[in-house]
């Protein structure tokens, strides 16, 4: 029986991959995207599993092939790739094609991660924190980091270990973390608090408070009407840049018209 004791993957090895995974986009490029980052993250494990230089170099070269996904969920694919490489190195299973697994997972996990982290969690943390900052809670910036990173760091670590345990079972990932359900909940809360930002307009911090002389409720309703006009303009197609420039021009127009 071969002695593959030195080929055991420990929690410390996986934490090393997790740490290096934070740099997966350090050399992000249009052509190769995260390919070098993936190879960089898995490299210490390959060095441990393949003591023979030629095989190590060949496996490392393989992992520099094109790769791109959502950077946090890349941890899941990294965990799965570590498991496949370990099985291959120890002879337990040499049939699984690690490149095929990476290729099959990266697009769906990219879409899932973009939708959950960029499209739901980030706006949720931003909307709640901005609402508090607007009304004078200076600690809202810290709250933003806490709200976001409790999920981010927890999931980044959790999916790495899950990827390793399951060898890349995406169905298991979806069942365990229920990203789609949580995305719906976070979006609903974000929307409600967005409405709350406008509803609390008379309570905004001094710098943002409109100085028009009108009752608080009327001010909030006017704010909502103005926001809905902006939403309607955006529906016709307009970028943040164009809208900001347009808003500045409108303010200058109002000032010269003597309205403000």
């Amino acid at each position: 029986m071969r002695n593959d004791h030195h080929k055991e993957i420990t929690a410390a090895d996986l934490l090393g991959v997790l740490g290096r995974g934070l740099l997966i986009q350090a050399s992000w490029s249009f052509e190769w995207m995260q390919s070098l980052g993936f190879a960089y993250a898995i490299e210490p494990v390959l060095r441990k599993l393949y003591p023979e230089q030629a095989e190590y170099a060949s496996r490392l070269r393989l992992h520099t092939d094109y790769f791109n996904t959502q950077p946090y969920l890349a941890s899941f694919i990294l965990g799965a790739a570590v498991k496949i490489e370990q099985d291959r190195a120890t002879g337990r299973n040499r049939t699984v094609d690690v490149q095929a697994l990476k290729a099959s997972l990266m697009a769906p996990l990219g879409a899932l991660g973009d939708s959950f982290f960029w499209g739901s969690l980030k706006p949720f943390a931003a909307v709640v924190s901005a609402a508090l900052l607007m009304t004078g809670s200076w600690w809202a910036s810290f709250l933003f980091l806490a709200l976001y990173n409790i999920w981010h760091i927890g999931l980044r670590a959790g999916v790495l270990f899950l990827g390793y345990r399951t060898g890349g079972d995406a169905v298991g990932l979806m069942a365990r973390y229920r990203f789609t359900r949580w995305a719906g909940v976070l979006k609903a809360i974000s929307h409600t608090v967005l409405g709350g930002i406008v509803g609390t307009l008379p309570l905004w911090r001094q710098e943002f408070r409109l100085t028009f002389d009108m009752p608080a409720l009327l001010m909030a309703v006017s704010g909502m009407a103005f926001t809905l006009v902006l939403v309607a303009v955006l529906r016709k197609g307009g970028s943040p840049l164009k809208l900001m420039l347009g808003l500045a021009a409108a303010c200058i127009g109002l000032a010269y018209a003597g309205v403000i």
């Binding site: 930002i197 905004w204 943002f208 103005f226 902006l230 955006l234 809208l243 900001m244 808003l247």
Partner: peptide, 11 residues
């Protein structure tokens, strides 16, 4: 003063 409302509309 109007930038936050623009932000709300965009989100």
């Amino acid at each position: 003063k109007l930038l936050p409302l623009l932000g709300v509309a965009l989100v």
